[in-house]
Design a protein around this nucleic acid. Sequence first.
DNA 1: ATAAATCTTGACAAAAAAAGTAAAGATTTT
DNA 2: AAAATCTTTACTTTTTTTGTCAAGATTTAT
Lengths: 146, 146
Amino acid sequence: MSISTRGRYGLRALLEIAQNYGSGPINIRDISKNQKISMSYLEQILHRLKKAGLIRSIRGAKGGYLLAKESNQITIKDIVKVLDGPIGVAYCDFPNLREKSCIGPKVCASSILWKRLELTIDDFLSKVTLADLKEEPPSSKKGMRK
Amino acid sequence: MSISTRGRYGLRALLEIAQNYGSGPINIRDISKNQKISMSYLEQILHRLKKAGLIRSIRGAKGGYLLAKESNQITIKDIVKVLDGPIGVAYCDFPNLREKSCIGPKVCASSILWKRLELTIDDFLSKVTLADLKEEPPSSKKGMRK
DNA sequence: ATAAATCTTGACAAAAAAAGTAAAGATTTT
DNA sequence: AAAATCTTTACTTTTTTTGTCAAGATTTAT
């Protein structure tokens, strides 16, 4: 009942990228440094996020990563789904029974419970976007660090 | 983001025990047969549930397991907690930094998110009890409560 | 054009967690 | 006393997670 480190790292990387909006693409090396995640592992994670259409990349010198959509269009659910797989809390414990598709009402009762839990989580995660978590842009009086 | 098989099996075993209310204790062998879970594994699971005070056991011939409380006093959260451990969706990724307890606002934003998710799940699971999932005893009409 | 920076991809390995098995022992009822 | 049943611990296997490594492809700046 927990989020994998891949999921957590992915969210942090995305926040880093989102934060950088307006300063052009941010490269893996910087994300790695700021978030203390190894470059190799980051490559894997970012590749998944890219394949899923959440970010896009620019190659070559001065390249890096950018959000593929506005940060308020990217939900946490999207991210978790890409990095942790679908939310599936539990599937039927007897998917392969020939005689009937389900062993009986007791099992069904629990299956239904897990399904409802899944929907609850899903609902929560699809209502929060990257924008909700993003720091305000460092425009005003406060000195900004790069 | 899923329930372990131990948790799922445990819930099913408990439903089996709850179902049997009024017919005295039910033994491991029967639960094992009905739910298709190995006796050895069940022993492990039931022992945890007993230690946690959710069920009690009667030894010797004609012995078996009983709920330790009314089925409406046992929440799914109780069960999951015993079998899957506490819900903890995610902890701080940098618990050991000496300088400060947190690396910065970006990390905090995600930590807070995971904490809120945790509370959401927790809330859901503590509102459902075994009684809500239990089948009606065979004599009565088939009423479905919410 | 070329070199350097950067993303891309696939294979592999170490570590941790989950799932399950086995067996000897203790207790109680009949 | 025997049989049924729960108790407990140790161990093994399997799966998942968490990464590392390395060669390759692409693009930009000069």
